[in-house]
Structure formats: C-alpha cells, structure tokens
Computed example of a mutant assay.
Amino acid sequence: MSNDKGYVEPGQDFQRDTNYIEDRITADGSSGWPVEVGRYRLVVARACPWANRATIVRRLLGLEHAFSMGICGPTHDERSWTFDLDPDGRDPVLGHERLQEAFLARDPQYPRGITVPAMVDVPTRAVVTNDFAQMTLDFSTQWTAHHRAGAPELYPEHLRAEMDEVMQRVFTEVNNGVYRCGFAGSQRAYDRAYTRLFTALDWLAERLADRRFLMGDTITEADVRLFTTLARFDAVYHGHFKCNRQKLSEMPVLWAYARDLFQTPGFGDTIDFPQVKRHYYVVHRDVNPTQVVPQGPDTANWLTPHGREELGGSPFGDGTPPGPVADGEEVPAEHGAGGSVSV
C-alpha cells in the first residue's frame, strides 16, 4: 500500500490511516536506533509525495553519504511497493523484492499499511520507521553531525512553534486535502473538501504574496512539505482528484512560488512526472477504472522565469545549494520539466 492508505465510509469523508511505526533514529541512541553512517537505507518511490519529502530533505542536507536510498517503482499491488526498477527486481542492498519483506522482518504479523518512505536497518533488513512526518525532522535535528557544509537549517529552533502550526495546516488542508477531494464518498463530502482545499490555497497565496518562502527569506521544511503537493497538482490532482477550481499554473502567486522551488537544486531534480502520473492513474482503480494515463500536461512551463527574486532572500541564505545528484539517483532528463510526457 502507499501513503494514500485510508478508508471512505459510504457517503462520508476520506479518513487517512496515520498509524505508523514511530521508532526514531537518534543522535544519542536512546531510541535504540543510533545514528550510524551506512547502517540504514531510505526506501522511497518517486511517485509518492510523502516519500518525495524525504528525498528532498536528504539531498538538501547532503546526507547521501550517511544513508543510502532504494527506489521502488511507481505502481504497487495490495501487498506493497516493489523494487521493479532494479535490474533483477530486487533491492541491491536489502535483497528484498517487496518493501513488505522489511516490515515482516520487523514483525511477521505486521497488520498495517506498507508505506514509503521507510528507513530500514541494513544488518537486519527490517524496517525501523515509516513515520514520514517525524523522519524528515530527524534528518534535520538528529543527523546534524553528517550534514554537508553549507546545508540549510530546515527546522530552525526559533521558528518551530510557528512552523509547526503552518505545517499542520498544510498537512490537513492541502497535502491531505487533495486526497479528501479525490476519495470523497459523496457529493456533500466532496463539496466540503473542495472548499477546505481552496480556502487553504488562498490563505497560502496571501501569505506568500510578500514573502519569498513560507517562513521568510529562506527555505525550511515547511516549503518542502507544500512543494511536493504543488508539484503534482496540475499533473494529477486537478483532474484525477477533481481539484479543478484552477490549475496551479492559473494561481499566480503559488505558481511562481512553486517554480522558484522547482528551479532550486534539491527540489525539481527529484520530480519524475511520468512516474507520478503512472502511480495515481494506475493504482487508484476506484477513481480511474480504465487505468488510462493522460499524456499531458506539458511540463516545460516549470522552467519559465518566476520573478520571486524581487521579494529578496535566497533559498539557502548564507549556505550553499547541494551539489550534483548522486550517481544512480538521477531522474531521467526526459522525465523532468520539459521532457517527454510519455509514460
């Protein structure tokens, strides 16, 4: 299962299952899982917005050397994500064919959803945590000894109280809000979800009208969390999830903000548009029974000028952007902005 996991009672709202393995990898090891270079493997899928957060934060902080990354294919069945992108259909480090194997190694009777992102303990090949929200905050706060020189402070202590409020609203109203629209069990539930989503997007547009990023002049975790939904909006959520008051490209402030981030190293270079579309349109058979994947939209507009520099600030402040994408982790050029729309 993906992080789309949840349920809809007939005629009711979509309810997300948020019951994750909440173990943490900590600097002092008090959790039982100490920070240790080379011990863990981050398992993601390019298609998943929740996993996309982890790929972005790992890259921004320069943690590629600290823990490796395995990439599942864009589709999955009812059992779990699979490593079908690897030459022999197995993750080369863990040896698993399915992410489910890592969860069953942890608990042979594991009863819940098999989700990405997941941090897996390489020696035991067992999952440590799939708590996506805490995971990226821990990348910022627990792995600091292994951050690259010039890495941004994505969860600055003096902003945390306000950031937590902003991120909670982004999660409930936007990240989860698009799903609430897409999986609504009745017209009434959909209408409520639609209103909530666009109310929140209007609030975000107002907030971003006079500040370059959500918390001010530099990027933070809050921007990462909003970006992964915005990057999928026109390709998937506008049509597939019926979030169609406007396309993102028709919302001037949010569209410029999203392009600013997309063109920042660490953001757009993690987006694989064909995989995103294939995941949603193929896996969500209840929403798209034919599994036909649309050809559009054209993604070349993601590389057009955004003009957000006029607001001042810079993505990395006094720091520096990350270097080139690690070998083997590149998104194919034809899958990014301006590339082929084929799937």
Rank of each mutant, 00 (worst) to 15 (best):
A222S: 15
V224P: 03
L226Q: 07
F227A: 13
T229V: 14
L230K: 01
L230F: 03
A231S: 05
A231C: 12
D234F: 01
V236H: 01
Y237Q: 01
H238S: 02
H238K: 08
H240G: 04
C243Q: 02
N244L: 04
R245S: 00
R245Q: 10
Q246G: 00
K247C: 02
K247R: 14
E250W: 04
V253G: 05
A256Q: 01
Y257E: 01
A258Q: 01
A258R: 02
R259W: 12
T264E: 10
P265N: 06
P265L: 09
G266Q: 03
F267K: 01
G268E: 08
D269G: 07
D269K: 11
D269A: 02
T270E: 13
D272N: 11
D272P: 05
P274H: 04
P274S: 02
Q275F: 11
Q275E: 15
K277W: 02
K277I: 00
H279E: 10
Y280E: 01
Y280Q: 02
Y281L: 12
V282I: 13
V282K: 09
H284C: 06
R285K: 15
V287E: 06
N288L: 07
P289Q: 10
T290E: 09
Q291E: 12
Q291H: 12
Q291S: 15
P294M: 02
Q295K: 15
G296T: 01
T299G: 13
T299Y: 08
A300D: 07
A300V: 02
N301L: 13
T304R: 14
P305L: 11
P305I: 13
H306W: 12
H306N: 15
G307S: 03
R308L: 02
E309A: 15
E309Y: 09
S314K: 10
S314Y: 04
P315V: 05
F316M: 06
F316I: 10
G317M: 14
D318G: 10
T320P: 00
T320C: 09
P324A: 12
V325C: 14
A326Y: 03
A326R: 07
D327W: 05
D327R: 14
D327F: 04
G328N: 08
V331S: 09
V331F: 15
P332Q: 12
P332R: 08
A333H: 03
A333Q: 03
E334K: 15
E334I: 13
H335N: 15
H335L: 05
H335Y: 14
A337R: 00
G338P: 06
G339W: 10
